[in-house]
Design a protein around this nucleic acid. Structure first.
Length: 712
DNA sequence: CGGGAAAAGCTTTTT
DNA sequence: GCTTTTCCCG
């Protein structure tokens, strides 16, 4: 029953005997299906209780999807099951064992932004020069150490700079401990530390989880690997699923070697390959296979499909990035006339900066689109302000929240006053809130500052009193009004302020919805909500009803699929990126990124590049990406003609001025009385006012009025 | 404290 | 070059 509708490799994976398994799952080979069916198999055939199973993913989205599918398969709520992200499960663990982990019960989670502020504060308190020791570098150092599982005393500094960063690391940990906050990496780090040091707990968890499944294993880093080993112990069965060819997060510490290490550390691990692809046409797969074959040290895997070969891959050479964008937009307009909806189409690119030109072209033709990977809801400044007030209520020691709201909205507490509080806090070895309480009793400050501070103390204390018995959504609403945040953003003029107000209103709804769904743990609702905001700031997916073209980076496209994919910017320097080109390892990661991009496509794949592109302010000619040369020529159709500047775009409000018709088009050879021969780069406006940007052979690039130019 | 000017980035990103 | 952040002064 469970095995119905699975192919033989999938069946083998799902019904494998209890033991260690390494599932090499190619793109589109039904990886999630295997994971969920495996869990169903364990429960139904191996008589393993759902409570003895742990399933780990990287994103909340993947975890939620898995949970939903399992509930569907098993027809029981999977709420009590340990399905979640490394961070989410660690959080659950630390909430249950806060005492053993030496944390306050109300501990709060710092996101990377809060973390940076905290690090900056520590750097100042050590009297270090921020320019010589940039907080971002320090944060990177701290996270890197924790990701390798090293406490401050385990770090061996190699030079003066790393000695300094080590001091920062030490002071930072102390400051976090004092404030009762932990950062993202700490979730994993402290979980590992606790399991290592506490044999009872370790034994308890190792006896509990008889089966552990890990998704996207190629993305695990060192601490995650340690984490897995600690939970798995010697006796439990571990199934990992991954694809070395889709490892694209090496730059942030993912260790592809973990897949190789697995077979050594987990004896008897059996490797099963899922190579049948259910997503793409034969042509797309053949091309992707040929590309990835250029990489070395692969575990080896060849995707195949029962599907037809389908159409060849279209490669388009644009004159510049505008021309490239117009080609894409024109093709989208054609596709729209056929069976494709806009939401079937994705434009993928290497870096976010590329989206602007594409957006402008889409806008010009009135094609709805959506850019992914922007600022997430819970990361918005106004939301973080509001959450900081809530955090103060949950845990007044939270220095990072304190710093954020002490003068937001502005209440006459300037930098000087805050510095005084910080200094006192350091001397008294206290948190900022404690320091403030001590100082305000002593008439320490000038009269005006003292008054403002007193008002602030009263505000927080009265908020704390008044919200005591309220439901979560009422608490949020009360805090928004009492803090003056609503008023503050109401004053902000323009559309921006309005959006912010809407976002704040939405926070009340979010809180309401949160309690409706029921808090998962035995935590107070406010604490649970704050953890949710920090840990599960859900990436907003496109509304089912929204029909728009999807724009995103190659990285964020991983795990998704689209009938039509445009892979833009396939040029040397951009893709592969110039920072990666001289490191063979990094170059292979770029190639994997290209592989990931290509294998997102189901039916049609377009790969485009621009001969001339404006990058970092300068215009530069780039060769077509080496990845294009690595594709078998017989699978490609090259489109050589330049896009004719197209029929009039739809007249829509706020649309950009349409490109001029008639006299000039992009790429055209032209002549000027003084400047000589040149090529048209871009057009703006029309009629007499038309401005034409031309690159002249002798004098470089100039923008001039069209009437001074003659077609050649 | 807010607005404008100067300066600093500038690959990819989840938790 | 363009956008975001920081700085400085009224």
């Amino acid at each position: 029953m469970i095995l119905d509708s699975l192919n033989s490799a999938q069946q083998e994976a799902v019904s494998a005997p209890l033991g260690h398994q390494l599932i090499l799952a190619g793109a589109g080979s039904g990886k999630t299906r295997v994971l969920t069916h495996r869990i169903a198999w364990l429960v139904q055939r191996e008589q393993i209780s759902p409570l003895q199973i742990m399933a780990v993913t990287f994103t909340n989205k993947a975890a939620n999807e898995m949970r939903t599918r399992i509930e569907h398969l098993l027809r029981v709520p999977a709420k009590t099951m340990w399905i979640g992200t490394f961070h989410g499960l660690s959080h659950r663990f630390l909430r249950a064992h806060w005492q053993e982990a030496n944390l306050p019960q109300t501990f709060q989670i710092l996101d990377s932004d809060d973390q940076l502020r905290m690090v900056r504060r520590v750097i100042h308190s050590l009297n270090l020069d921020e320019d010589r020791y940039p907080p971002k570098e320090a944060r990177w150092f701290i996270n890197a150490q924790k990701e390798e599982g090293r406490d401050p005393h385990q770090v061996i500094p190699h030079d003066m700079a790393s000695q300094t960063y080590l001091n920062v690391y030490q002071a930072y940990q102390a400051a976090c401990q004092r404030a009762g906050v932990i950062d993202f990496t700490d979730l994993l780090f402290k979980t590992c530390k606790l399991l290592q040091s506490n044999a009872n707990l370790r034994q308890h968890y190792q006896e509990r989880f008889r089966c552990i499944l890990v998704d996207e294993f190629q993305d695990t880093n060192t601490i995650q690997y340690m984490w897995l080993k600690l939970f798995a112990g010697e006796a439990n069965a571990v199934m990992i699923v991954g694809d070395d060819d889709q490892s694209i997060y090496g730059w942030r510490g993912a260790r592809i070697e973990n897949i190789h290490r697995f077979s050594n550390d987990f004896p008897g691990a059996k490797t099963i390959r899922l190579e049948q692809n259910y997503r793409s046409t034969g042509t797309i797969l053949k091309a992707a296979n040929a590309l990835i074959a250029k990489n070395t040290g692969r575990l080896g895997k060849n995707l195949w499909t029962d599907d037809k070969d389908g159409e060849p891959i279209t490669v388009y050479s644009g004159f510049n990035e505008t021309d490239e964008a117009f080609f894409i937009v024109n093709r989208i307009r054609e596709l729209r006339q056929t069976d494709y909806r806009l939401r079937d189409i994705a434009i993928l690119y290497r870096s976010n900066a590329q989206s602007r030109v594409l957006e402008e072209a889409l806008m010009q033709f009135g094609i709805p689109y959506r850019v992914y990977g922007g600022l997430r809801y819970f990361d918005r400044a106004e939301i973080k302000d509001a959450l900081a007030y809530l955090r103060m209520l949950a845990n007044p020691s939270d220095d990072s929240a304190f710093e954020r709201i002490i003068n937001t909205p502005t209440r006459g507490i300037g930098d000087r006053t805050v510095t005084a509080i910080r200094e006192h806090a350091r001397e008294a070895n206290a948190t900022l809130w404690q320091a403030l309480l001590q100082l305000s009793g002593k008439q320490f400050f000038a009269a005006r500052a003292h008054q403002s501070l007193e008002a602030f103390v009263n505000l927080i204390q009265s908020m704390s009193d008044k919200t005591q018995t309220m439901t979560l959504d009422k608490q949020v609403e009360y805090v928004l009004r009492a803090s003056g945040l609503i008023e503050h953003y109401r004053k902000e003029k323009g559309e921006k302020g309005l959006t912010r107000l809407e976002n704040l209103e939405e926070l009340i709804n979010a809180a309401h919805q949160f309690i409706q769904e029921g808090t998962p743990d035995d935590m107070p609702p406010l604490a649970a909500f704050l953890a949710y905001a920090a840990l599960e700031s859900s990436d907003e997916q496109a509304n089912e009803h929204d029909d728009c073209v999807q724009l995103m980076t190659l990285h964020s496209a991983k795990g998704l699929e689209f009938p039509v994919v445009f892979l833009a910017g396939c040029e040397e320097e951009l893709f592969p990126h110039y920072l990666c080109m001289h490191d063979p390892k990094a170059l292979e990661e770029e190639r994997r990124l290209c592989y990931v991009g290509m294998t997102r496509a189901e039916k049609k794949l377009f790969m485009t590049y621009a001969e001339l592109r404006r990058m970092h302010g300068k215009e530069a000619y780039h060769k077509p990406s080496r990845f294009l040369h690595e594709l078998p020529p017989e699978l490609i159709t090259e489109v050589r003609f330049r896009t004719k500047v197209s029929p009039r775009p739809m007249p829509i409000a706020n649309s950009y001025k349409p490109e001029a018709e008639g006299k000039f088009r992009i790429g055209q050879e032209v002549q000027h009385r003084i400047f000589g021969d040149g090529t048209v780069l871009s057009l703006e406006g029309d009629g007499e006012d038309m401005k034409v940007k031309v690159r002249f052979a002798k004098v470089g690039t100039k923008t001039l009025i069209g009437s001074y130019l003659n077609p050649k």
